[in-house]
């Protein structure tokens, strides 16, 4: 059945991605992670499960972390989107990224951009969360390589350095 008229197949959106204005005409059903990867070439966000479970596509929209596979691009007119490429340029996650490298908190790297966004949310809250709290906070992101301990260590290092610096 042709649904033309009931809803539009394509939708125009204007948003900012990593601080740059983007205007696009997108399929109404296109997920944000596909838009970023296929239309903008921002391949740092990864599609792991496409139903919001694994966290590999975690990115930041309007200051909140979201699953890129559960957000429709058509919903994002006027939105501000940040991906791992953008925050790497601004340097705002530098401490976390350095800690991940130093502690080998990544192996294959596929989950890592999503992990970083989830971890950054915790770091931004401030304070010195316990290992248990860090584990709980990170429990929406799959990692099949590390066994998680190195990731927890890296985040703990950054939260404790941050508190120490205050």
């Amino acid at each position: 059945m042709n649904a033309e008229g009931m809803f539009r197949r394509q939708v125009e959106v204007a948003l900012t991605v990593n601080g740059e204005p983007v205007e696009a005409r997108v399929d109404a059903g296109k997920h944000l992670v596909d838009f970023l990867r296929l239309d903008l070439g921002l391949t740092g966000s990864h599609a792991g499960c496409e139903h919001g479970v694994c966290g590999a596509c975690t990115i930041r929209v309007n200051g909140e972390i979201v699953r890129g596979c559960l957000v429709l691009t058509a919903q994002l007119d006027g939105a501000e989107v940040w991906t791992v490429e953008g925050v790497s340029e601004t340097g705002e996650m530098r401490a976390l990224q350095d800690a991940f490298v130093q502690r080998n908190a990544l192996q294959c790297g596929f989950c890592t951009p999503g992990m970083l966004f989830a971890a950054a949310e915790l770091v931004e809250r401030g304070g010195r969360p316990s290992r248990e709290e860090i584990r709980e906070h990170m429990s929406g992101n799959y990692c099949r390589c590390t066994g998680y301990e190195a990731i927890i260590d890296a985040i703990e290092q950054v939260t404790s350095d941050q508190e120490g610096a205050r």
Binding site: R37, T43, A47, E85, Q97, F100, L106, G109, F110, P113
Partner: peptide, 19 residues
């Protein structure tokens, strides 16, 4: 020694087949 390829992976600069 830290892995030389880790630094680009944390910046989303991996190159997996789908990329």
């Amino acid at each position: 020694v830290p892995r030389p390829n880790a630094a680009r992976l944390v910046e989303g600069r991996g190159r997996y087949v789908d990329d």
